[in-house]
Design a protein around this nucleic acid. Structure first.
Lengths: 144, 144
DNA sequence: TATTGTTATACTCTATAACTATA
DNA sequence: TATAGTTATAGAGTATAACAATA
């Protein structure tokens, strides 16, 4: 975790991205802990809240994970009563997954906490640098 | 891997950093494959090349990983004759780890290949944007 | 035949605990 | 007593294969 920085290694993009992710994960995990979820679970809640309540398979697709991985994530969230599975009446192979009322409240609070973690992650940058950082990151990642 | 981008999720820094890392890893892995190593192994070679040849424990410290993890990394690199362990004459508990001649040649070629992967990772940015991206990333990660 | 959810299983990466040999 | 290297083991997190239910 805490590495004795060597100049050439720390100039590598791979090193920087890895450590950026580690730092943000630490901040996010701490910020979300009071709400009883972690970053991956927040991502699931966000995906369930956006657009039509999806099937498990669709939700996995939106997140870019396997449907078998989604099973375990939903098990944990359902155990906390944040989401509910119900069979799709029109295709009984599918489960429609929706947020519960508790899930919606938790999502709202967790979203705020996560945004605050992002703010702290970027706090060494000026506002315009922070905005620029987001823009550059999106350019590099999206619109492939 | 390929996620159906949902607007709110893809605006999250965690999402962007994760996917940035995935994209760079893909490019780097492909660029390094002809040289028979991956990104983690390149990081080890870089660390061994910088400053005094370290012990396994020191090398692990420079990388920020556990000494037990270093064992396996060095096993793989030694099997490929890229590094050599020799007992430290002054403290026979320690192994000094150094690059072989082959290791130095591989490192030189792999470093070039990795730099080229970084260039492709950033190719949607102008030169000054790419430089700015590195600066912002370093600011956020380093000089904690 | 194909798809959804599930389980069993395995693989990768990492760490902790315990052993050994040295100090 | 403490440290370096090693091994055994375990825990995340992920995926593939196979199965039951349904289409």
């Amino acid at each position: 975790m805490s590495s004795t920085v060597t100049p050439e290694l720390s100039a590598r993009l791979g090193y920087l991205l890895k450590h950026a992710q580690e730092r943000l994960r630490g901040l996010t995990t701490a910020a979300l802990a009071p709400h009883g979820i972690d970053g991956r679970q927040l991502a699931v809640l966000l995906v369930l809240a956006e657009g039509e309540p999806p099937s498990q398979h669709e939700a996995a697709g939106r997140l870019g994970i396997d449907r078998t991985t989604m099973v375990g994530l939903l098990d944990a969230l359902e155990e906390k009563r944040l989401v509910a599975r119900r069979p799709d009446a029109r295709d009984r192979r599918r489960n429609v997954v929706a947020l519960t009322d508790t899930g919606r409240r938790t999502l709202a609070a967790a979203r705020t906490a996560s945004t605050e973690a992002e703010r702290r992650f970027l706090e060494r940058l000026t506002a315009s640098q922070a905005e620029q950082f987001r823009v550059l990151l999106r350019t590099v990642v999206l619109d492939a």
